[in-house]
Design a protein around this nucleic acid. Structure first.
Lengths: 206, 206
DNA sequence: TCTGCAAGTAATCATCCGATTACAACTCAG
DNA sequence: CTGAGTTGTAATCGGATGATTACTTGCAGA
C-alpha cells in the first residue's frame, strides 16, 4: 500500500488461438527461413511473435510439428501464387510463374523455408511433408500449367538455383564479383534491381 | 596384482596428425552431409572417425572451423572431378561434367555438404567460404569449360535440382510416385538405376 | 638411453534448449 | 454475477553439446 507498483503489461493482448497460430506461423517462417530448422529455437520464434516460449510449444505440440505447419503453409502459399499466375497466354506462363516465385520473397522466409525443407528428406516426419510439397508443385506445373516433363525439369531446376542465390546471399556481391553478377543477370534478366531489393543481405540472418 | 585386468585398446592407433585430419574430414563429410551443419554434433563426427570428441575439437579449433574445412575440401574435390571431365569433344562436355557431379555421390555426404553450404550464406564465416566455393565453380564452368553465361546458368540450376533430389530422398518414391519418377527420369535419362543406387534412402540419414 | 614433443583420452563444465508444470487473468454463457 | 473454459506466463527441469583441463602414452632424435 505504501508504494504503487507500475502495472507491467507482461502478457500479450488477448487473441483467439486461431489468430495467434497464424501470427506465430508468420513469425516462425521468418525465423526458420533465416536460421534453418535445426538452428532455430522455439524461444526465438516466440519472441518474434511476441508471446512466451511455452505457449508456442503448447499451441503446436513440438518444434517439429511447428516446422511442419510452417512448410505446409509455405507450399500452400506457393501453389496459390502459381494458380494466380496461370491465366493468360501460354508462352508467357513460365515467366509469370517465375515472377510469382520470386514475388514470394516479400513474405519473409517463405522461399528459404521451402529450400531448407528440401534438405531434410532424412527426417522421417518432415521428410514426408517436404516430399509431398515438392510432388504437389511438380504435379501442378506438369498438369495444371501444362508443361512437358522436360519443361518442368528446367523450371524446377531454375527455382532451385534461385533458392541457392537467396541462401548464399549472393546479391551482396553483385557488381563486385563476376559469378554473382552473372548468375543474377541471367536469372533475373531485366529485373535484377527488383530482385536484389527483395533478398536478404550477407550480414547475417534476414 | 591379484587380478589381471584386460588391457583395453582404449586409444586409437597412433597416426600422424595430418593423416588423422584427413580421416576426420572424410568422416565429418558423411555426418554433416547426413544431418546438416547445425544438426551434427562433434561427438558424432568423432565416433565416426574413431577418435574422441575433444581430439576433434583440438585438431580443428571449433565445430565451425571443422565444417569450413569440410566444405573447402568438398568444393576442391568437385573441381578436381570437373577438371578430369574436361578433355574430349566439346558437345559431350556438359554431360561428362554432369556425370562427374553425380559420381561424387559415392563419396558419402559430399554433395549434401555442398548443398547444405548453399543454405548458410547468413553465417558470417561459413557464408564467405560457401560463396567463394560457388563462385569458383561458376568461374570454372564459364571459363575453363567454355560455357556461355546461359549455359552455365542451366548447368548450375541442374546441379541444384540434383541436390534437391538427394536432399529430399526422392529415389525411394521412384516407380510409386509420379513426380519422383518423372524428375529422376528427366534428370538421369538412361542411368536412373545407377543414380538410385548411389543415393541415400528415405529411412533417415545415410 | 632418456627426454621432450606429438598424439590421444577421460572427466568435467557451463550453457542452451525443448518441454512440463503450475498458476494467473480474461471473457462470456447462463 | 459467477464460474468454467480459454488465453497466456513464470519457473524450472533434464538432457544434450561444444569446449576446456589435466592427464597418459608412444616415439624419434641427441
Amino acid at each position: 500500500m505504501s508504494s504503487m507498483t507500475i502495472e507491467e503489461v507482461s502478457t500479450a493482448p488477448r487473441m483467439r488461438a486461431a489468430d495467434r497460430r497464424e501470427l506465430i506461423l508468420e513469425a516462425a517462417t521468418a525465423v526458420f527461413g533465416a536460421k534453418t530448422y535445426v538452428g532455430t529455437t522455439t524461444d526465438e520464434v516466440a519472441r518474434a511473435a511476441g508471446v512466451s516460449q511455452p505457449y508456442v510449444v503448447r499451441l503446436f505440440g513440438t518444434k517439429e510439428k511447428l516446422f511442419i505447419s510452417v512448410i505446409e503453409r509455405a507450399y500452400g502459399r506457393l501453389l496459390d501464387e502459381f494458380r494466380r499466375a496461370l491465366p493468360g497466354d501460354a508462352e508467357g506462363r513460365s515467366e509469370r510463374m517465375g515472377t510469382a516465385y520470386t514475388g514470394l520473397l516479400v513474405e519473409r522466409g517463405m522461399l528459404s523455408v521451402i529450400a531448407n525443407s528440401t534438405a531434410l528428406g532424412g527426417e522421417p516426419e518432415i521428410g514426408r511433408v517436404a516430399r509431398a510439397g515438392f510432388s504437389e508443385i511438380w504435379r501442378f506445373v506438369r498438369e495444371d500449367a501444362g508443361f512437358s516433363a522436360e519443361e518442368t525439369r528446367a523450371f524446377m531446376a531454375q527455382g532451385m538455383l534461385i533458392n541457392t542465390i537467396v541462401g548464399l546471399r549472393l546479391t551482396g556481391d553483385y557488381g563486385t564479383e563476376t559469378a554473382a553478377t552473372e548468375v543474377l543477370d541471367t536469372c533475373f534478366v531485366d529485373s535484377v534491381e527488383k530482385a536484389r531489393n527483395l533478398m536478404p543481405e550477407a550480414g547475417e540472418p534476414w
